[in-house]
Protein backbone atom coordinates (compact mmCIF):
# COMPACT_ATOMS: atom_id res chain seq x y z
CA UNK A 1 0.00 0.00 0.00
CA UNK A 2 1.30 3.43 -0.95
CA UNK A 3 1.97 5.94 1.85
CA UNK A 4 3.15 9.54 1.65
CA UNK A 5 6.02 10.00 4.09
CA UNK A 6 6.30 13.75 3.59
CA UNK A 7 4.63 16.24 1.28
CA UNK A 8 5.85 19.81 0.76
CA UNK A 9 4.27 22.33 -1.55
CA UNK A 10 6.39 23.64 -4.42
CA UNK A 11 5.95 27.19 -5.73
CA UNK A 12 3.64 26.36 -8.62
CA UNK A 13 0.86 23.78 -8.39
CA UNK A 14 2.66 20.54 -7.44
CA UNK A 15 4.17 19.15 -4.25
CA UNK A 16 7.37 17.32 -3.46
CA UNK A 17 6.33 13.93 -2.10
CA UNK A 18 8.49 11.18 -0.68
CA UNK A 19 6.46 8.01 -0.85
CA UNK A 20 6.84 4.45 0.28
CA UNK A 21 5.15 1.23 -0.63
CA UNK A 22 4.40 -0.99 2.37
CA UNK A 23 4.00 -4.71 1.76
CA UNK A 24 2.60 -6.58 4.72
CA UNK A 25 2.22 -10.30 5.38
CA UNK A 26 -1.10 -12.06 5.14
CA UNK A 27 -3.20 -11.99 8.32
CA UNK A 28 -1.71 -14.19 11.01
CA UNK A 29 1.70 -14.44 9.33
CA UNK A 30 3.39 -11.40 10.87
CA UNK A 31 6.38 -12.18 13.11
CA UNK A 32 6.84 -8.49 13.91
CA UNK A 33 9.95 -7.62 11.91
CA UNK A 34 10.31 -4.67 9.51
CA UNK A 35 12.87 -4.02 6.76
CA UNK A 36 13.21 -0.74 4.80
CA UNK A 37 14.68 -0.68 1.29
CA UNK A 38 15.75 2.80 0.34
CA UNK A 39 17.08 4.22 -2.91
CA UNK A 40 17.09 7.34 -5.10
CA UNK A 41 18.82 9.69 -2.66
CA UNK A 42 21.03 10.77 -5.54
CA UNK A 43 18.90 11.54 -8.57
CA UNK A 44 21.40 10.09 -11.06
CA UNK A 45 21.59 6.65 -9.39
CA UNK A 46 19.02 4.30 -10.84
CA UNK A 47 20.26 0.77 -10.04
CA UNK A 48 17.90 0.57 -7.06
CA UNK A 49 14.86 1.18 -9.27
CA UNK A 50 15.09 -2.25 -10.84
CA UNK A 51 15.79 -3.88 -7.48
CA UNK A 52 12.69 -2.39 -5.89
CA UNK A 53 10.47 -3.16 -8.88
CA UNK A 54 11.54 -6.78 -9.18
CA UNK A 55 11.52 -7.39 -5.44
CA UNK A 56 8.04 -5.88 -5.11
CA UNK A 57 6.87 -8.11 -7.94
CA UNK A 58 8.27 -11.23 -6.24
CA UNK A 59 6.89 -10.33 -2.80
CA UNK A 60 3.45 -9.55 -4.19
CA UNK A 61 3.44 -12.86 -6.08
CA UNK A 62 4.23 -14.86 -2.91
CA UNK A 63 2.81 -12.94 0.01
CA UNK A 64 2.07 -16.21 1.74
CA UNK A 65 5.83 -16.58 2.24
CA UNK A 66 6.24 -13.12 3.79
CA UNK A 67 6.39 -12.89 7.60
CA UNK A 68 7.25 -9.24 8.18
CA UNK A 69 6.69 -5.72 6.87
CA UNK A 70 8.66 -4.48 3.88
CA UNK A 71 8.80 -0.69 3.36
CA UNK A 72 10.12 0.31 -0.05
CA UNK A 73 11.24 3.94 -0.71
CA UNK A 74 12.08 4.15 -4.44
CA UNK A 75 12.71 7.89 -4.57
CA UNK A 76 14.15 9.73 -1.59
CA UNK A 77 14.94 12.57 -4.00
CA UNK A 78 12.03 12.49 -6.47
CA UNK A 79 12.78 15.90 -7.99
CA UNK A 80 16.37 14.82 -8.64
CA UNK A 81 15.41 11.55 -10.34
CA UNK A 82 12.75 13.32 -12.35
CA UNK A 83 15.13 16.01 -13.61
CA UNK A 84 18.35 13.88 -13.90
CA UNK A 85 19.94 15.88 -11.11
CA UNK A 86 22.22 14.21 -8.58
CA UNK A 87 21.37 16.60 -5.76
CA UNK A 88 18.08 18.07 -4.68
CA UNK A 89 17.23 20.77 -7.25
CA UNK A 90 17.55 24.31 -5.85
CA UNK A 91 19.49 23.05 -2.83
CA UNK A 92 23.28 23.17 -2.52
CA UNK A 93 24.00 20.30 -0.19
CA UNK A 94 24.19 16.61 -1.07
CA UNK A 95 21.05 14.94 0.34
CA UNK A 96 23.22 12.23 1.87
CA UNK A 97 25.10 14.87 3.89
CA UNK A 98 22.13 16.39 5.72
CA UNK A 99 20.85 13.57 7.92
CA UNK A 100 19.30 13.39 10.47
CA UNK A 101 17.72 16.53 9.01
CA UNK A 102 16.23 19.47 10.87
CA UNK A 103 12.79 20.57 11.94
CA UNK A 104 13.65 24.23 11.23
CA UNK A 105 15.82 23.55 8.19
CA UNK A 106 15.37 23.90 4.44
CA UNK A 107 12.75 21.80 2.65
CA UNK A 108 15.32 19.08 1.90
CA UNK A 109 16.54 18.97 5.52
CA UNK A 110 12.97 18.75 6.78
CA UNK A 111 12.15 16.02 4.26
CA UNK A 112 15.29 14.12 5.32
CA UNK A 113 14.16 14.33 8.94
CA UNK A 114 10.67 13.02 8.19
CA UNK A 115 12.00 10.17 6.03
CA UNK A 116 14.50 9.14 8.68
CA UNK A 117 11.84 9.27 11.40
CA UNK A 118 9.76 6.93 9.24
CA UNK A 119 12.59 4.38 9.06
CA UNK A 120 13.69 4.54 12.67
CA UNK A 121 12.86 1.47 14.69
CA UNK A 122 13.05 -0.86 11.68
CA UNK A 123 14.97 -4.08 12.19
CA UNK A 124 17.06 -3.39 9.09
CA UNK A 125 17.49 -0.62 6.51
CA UNK A 126 19.28 -1.18 3.20
CA UNK A 127 20.32 2.02 1.43
CA UNK A 128 20.98 1.21 -2.24
CA UNK A 129 23.34 3.48 -4.20
CA UNK A 130 24.77 3.21 -7.70
CA UNK A 131 28.12 4.98 -7.77
CA UNK A 132 27.72 7.97 -10.13
CA UNK A 133 27.86 8.50 -13.86
CA UNK A 134 31.66 8.29 -13.86
CA UNK A 135 32.42 4.92 -12.25
CA UNK A 136 31.22 1.35 -12.46
CA UNK A 137 31.24 -0.57 -9.19
CA UNK A 138 31.06 -4.26 -8.35
CA UNK A 139 28.20 -5.00 -5.91
CA UNK A 140 29.57 -4.17 -2.48
CA UNK A 141 28.52 -3.16 0.98
CA UNK A 142 30.31 -0.23 2.62
CA UNK A 143 30.50 -0.25 6.39
CA UNK A 144 31.89 2.39 8.73
CA UNK A 145 34.53 0.85 11.01
CA UNK A 146 32.55 2.13 14.00
CA UNK A 147 29.67 -0.23 13.27
CA UNK A 148 31.59 -3.03 11.54
CA UNK A 149 31.32 -5.57 14.35
CA UNK A 150 27.52 -5.57 14.26
CA UNK A 151 26.98 -5.04 10.55
CA UNK A 152 29.57 -7.20 8.75
CA UNK A 153 27.87 -10.52 9.67
CA UNK A 154 24.61 -9.15 8.21
CA UNK A 155 26.35 -7.73 5.12
CA UNK A 156 27.80 -11.18 4.44
CA UNK A 157 24.27 -12.43 3.82
CA UNK A 158 23.61 -9.88 1.04
CA UNK A 159 25.24 -11.87 -1.78
CA UNK A 160 27.65 -9.07 -2.71
CA UNK A 161 31.19 -9.50 -3.98
CA UNK A 162 32.91 -7.69 -1.19
CA UNK A 163 32.51 -5.65 1.96
CA UNK A 164 34.54 -2.49 2.34
CA UNK A 165 35.11 -1.47 5.94
CA UNK A 166 36.15 2.16 5.69
CA UNK A 167 37.58 4.60 8.20
CA UNK A 168 35.32 6.95 10.12
CA UNK A 169 35.25 10.60 8.98
CA UNK A 170 33.43 13.50 10.56
CA UNK A 171 31.89 14.55 7.25
CA UNK A 172 30.27 11.11 6.92
CA UNK A 173 28.39 11.58 10.18
CA UNK A 174 25.61 13.24 8.21
CA UNK A 175 24.79 10.26 5.98
CA UNK A 176 21.53 8.35 6.33
CA UNK A 177 23.42 5.18 7.26
CA UNK A 178 25.51 6.81 9.98
CA UNK A 179 22.51 8.63 11.40
CA UNK A 180 20.43 5.47 11.56
CA UNK A 181 23.21 3.26 12.91
CA UNK A 182 24.09 5.80 15.59
CA UNK A 183 20.49 5.82 16.79
CA UNK A 184 20.10 2.06 16.97
CA UNK A 185 18.54 1.24 13.60
CA UNK A 186 20.94 -0.99 11.62
CA UNK A 187 21.60 0.25 8.09
CA UNK A 188 23.70 -1.31 5.34
CA UNK A 189 24.88 0.76 2.35
CA UNK A 190 25.06 -1.03 -0.99
CA UNK A 191 27.02 0.42 -3.92
CA UNK A 192 26.81 -1.23 -7.32
CA UNK A 193 26.72 -0.55 -11.04
CA UNK A 194 26.96 2.88 -12.57
CA UNK A 195 24.96 6.09 -12.52
CA UNK A 196 22.14 6.72 -15.01
CA UNK A 197 22.06 3.04 -15.97
CA UNK A 198 20.55 -0.21 -14.73
CA UNK A 199 22.71 -3.34 -14.56
CA UNK A 200 20.12 -6.10 -14.36
CA UNK A 201 22.50 -8.89 -13.32
CA UNK A 202 23.72 -6.84 -10.35
CA UNK A 203 20.12 -6.10 -9.43
CA UNK A 204 19.23 -9.80 -9.49
CA UNK A 205 22.32 -10.60 -7.43
CA UNK A 206 21.27 -8.09 -4.76
CA UNK A 207 17.63 -9.23 -4.76
CA UNK A 208 18.81 -12.75 -3.98
CA UNK A 209 20.85 -11.31 -1.13
CA UNK A 210 17.98 -9.25 0.27
CA UNK A 211 15.71 -12.31 0.29
CA UNK A 212 18.49 -14.27 1.96
CA UNK A 213 18.84 -11.60 4.66
CA UNK A 214 15.06 -11.51 5.12
CA UNK A 215 15.04 -15.28 5.53
CA UNK A 216 17.78 -14.97 8.16
CA UNK A 217 15.61 -12.40 9.95
CA UNK A 218 12.64 -14.76 9.87
CA UNK A 219 10.73 -12.56 7.42
CA UNK A 220 10.78 -14.78 4.33
CA UNK A 221 10.05 -18.45 3.95
CA UNK A 222 10.68 -18.64 0.21
CA UNK A 223 13.52 -20.43 -1.46
CA UNK A 224 16.90 -18.73 -1.13
CA UNK A 225 20.37 -19.35 -2.50
CA UNK A 226 23.47 -19.54 -0.33
CA UNK A 227 25.12 -16.14 -0.66
CA UNK A 228 28.46 -15.81 -2.37
CA UNK A 229 31.27 -15.37 0.12
CA UNK A 230 32.36 -11.75 -0.05
CA UNK A 231 35.91 -10.53 0.41
CA UNK A 232 36.03 -8.40 3.55
CA UNK A 233 38.46 -5.52 3.13
CA UNK A 234 39.70 -3.15 5.83
CA UNK A 235 40.49 -0.22 3.55
CA UNK A 236 43.04 -2.35 1.67
CA UNK A 237 42.22 -0.54 -1.54
CA UNK A 238 44.50 1.09 -4.14
CA UNK A 239 43.15 4.22 -5.83
CA UNK A 240 44.27 5.03 -9.39
CA UNK A 241 43.74 8.66 -10.36
CA UNK A 242 44.58 10.41 -13.62
CA UNK A 243 47.64 12.63 -13.73
CA UNK A 244 46.87 14.05 -17.18
CA UNK A 245 43.78 15.54 -18.80
CA UNK A 246 42.23 13.86 -21.83
CA UNK A 247 40.18 10.82 -22.79
CA UNK A 248 40.50 7.62 -20.76
CA UNK A 249 40.52 4.46 -22.85
CA UNK A 250 40.53 1.36 -20.63
CA UNK A 251 42.28 -1.78 -21.82
CA UNK A 252 40.96 -4.13 -19.13
CA UNK A 253 37.55 -5.38 -18.20
CA UNK A 254 35.74 -4.45 -15.03
CA UNK A 255 35.64 -7.13 -12.33
CA UNK A 256 38.83 -8.93 -13.28
CA UNK A 257 42.06 -9.73 -11.48
CA UNK A 258 44.98 -7.52 -12.51
CA UNK A 259 48.70 -7.82 -11.89
CA UNK A 260 51.03 -5.13 -10.60
CA UNK A 261 52.44 -3.21 -13.57
CA UNK A 262 49.73 -4.39 -15.95
CA UNK A 263 48.40 -1.69 -18.26
CA UNK A 264 44.86 -0.66 -17.35
CA UNK A 265 44.43 1.92 -20.10
CA UNK A 266 45.71 5.17 -21.52
CA UNK A 267 44.77 8.82 -21.43
CA UNK A 268 44.63 10.00 -25.01
CA UNK A 269 44.75 13.43 -26.65
CA UNK A 270 42.42 13.30 -29.69
CA UNK A 271 43.86 16.56 -31.06
CA UNK A 272 47.46 15.39 -31.38
CA UNK A 273 47.17 11.63 -31.39
CA UNK A 274 49.48 11.64 -28.37
CA UNK A 275 49.20 9.22 -25.46
CA UNK A 276 49.39 11.57 -22.50
CA UNK A 277 49.57 8.91 -19.81
CA UNK A 278 49.77 5.15 -19.56
CA UNK A 279 47.86 3.81 -16.60
CA UNK A 280 49.25 0.74 -14.86
CA UNK A 281 48.12 -1.27 -11.85
CA UNK A 282 50.01 -0.33 -8.67
CA UNK A 283 49.33 -3.76 -7.15
CA UNK A 284 47.83 -7.17 -7.79
CA UNK A 285 44.16 -7.48 -7.02
CA UNK A 286 40.54 -7.27 -8.03
CA UNK A 287 39.57 -4.34 -10.26
CA UNK A 288 36.28 -3.55 -8.55
CA UNK A 289 35.91 0.05 -9.78
CA UNK A 290 36.48 1.17 -13.36
CA UNK A 291 35.83 4.56 -14.94
CA UNK A 292 32.92 4.60 -17.39
CA UNK A 293 32.94 8.28 -18.37
CA UNK A 294 35.89 8.96 -20.69
CA UNK A 295 36.67 12.67 -20.17
CA UNK A 296 39.18 13.12 -17.35
CA UNK A 297 40.97 15.90 -15.49
CA UNK A 298 44.10 15.41 -13.40
CA UNK A 299 42.74 13.72 -10.30
CA UNK A 300 39.79 11.98 -11.93
CA UNK A 301 39.35 8.53 -10.41
CA UNK A 302 40.04 5.85 -13.03
CA UNK A 303 39.98 2.61 -11.07
CA UNK A 304 40.18 1.00 -7.66
CA UNK A 305 41.85 -2.30 -6.88
CA UNK A 306 41.13 -4.50 -3.93
CA UNK A 307 44.69 -5.42 -3.09
CA UNK A 308 45.83 -8.98 -2.86
CA UNK A 309 45.30 -12.10 -4.89
CA UNK A 310 47.49 -14.43 -6.87
CA UNK A 311 50.28 -13.59 -9.31
CA UNK A 312 49.17 -16.52 -11.44
Amino acid sequence: MEHTVVSLQLPVQESLEIKKNRITPLPGNDRGKRICLVTGTHGDELEGQYVLWELTRQLNAHRELLHGTVDLYPAMNPLGINSITRGVPLFDLDMNRIFPGREDGHMAEYAAMKAMEDMQGADMVIDIHASNIFLKELPQVRVNELSAEALVPLAQLLNVDFIWIHAAATVLESTLAYSLNSTGTPCLVVEMGVGMRITKEYGDQLIAGILNLMAHMGMWDGETQPPREPIVSHDDVAFINASAAGIFLPSVAHNGMVQQGQQLGVIADPMTGETKEEITAPSNGLLFTLREYPVVYPGSLLARILKGGSDE
Binding site: D92, N132, F134, V171, F239, Y297, P298, G299, S300
Partner: peptide
Amino acid sequence: SRFWAMDGTDINRMFPGYDAGETTQR
Protein backbone atom coordinates in the same frame (compact mmCIF):
# COMPACT_ATOMS: atom_id res chain seq x y z
CA SER B 1 28.08 26.66 -12.95
CA ARG B 2 28.06 27.18 -9.16
CA PHE B 3 30.07 24.01 -8.56
CA TRP B 4 32.94 22.32 -10.39
CA ALA B 5 31.35 21.94 -13.79
CA MET B 6 32.70 18.46 -14.56
CA ASP B 7 31.33 16.59 -11.57
CA GLY B 8 29.29 19.04 -9.50
CA THR B 9 31.62 18.92 -6.51
CA ASP B 10 32.21 21.94 -4.30
CA ILE B 11 35.82 23.03 -3.70
CA ASN B 12 34.74 24.47 -0.35
CA ARG B 13 33.70 20.98 0.79
CA MET B 14 37.12 19.48 0.05
CA PHE B 15 39.54 21.01 2.57
CA PRO B 16 42.24 20.39 3.60
CA GLY B 17 42.33 18.61 0.25
CA TYR B 18 44.39 15.69 -0.95
CA ASP B 19 47.14 16.12 -3.53
CA ALA B 20 46.73 12.57 -4.89
CA GLY B 21 42.94 12.60 -4.79
CA GLU B 22 40.14 13.70 -7.08
CA THR B 23 40.32 16.95 -9.04
CA THR B 24 38.63 19.29 -6.56
CA GLN B 25 40.51 17.63 -3.69
CA ARG B 26 43.72 18.49 -5.56
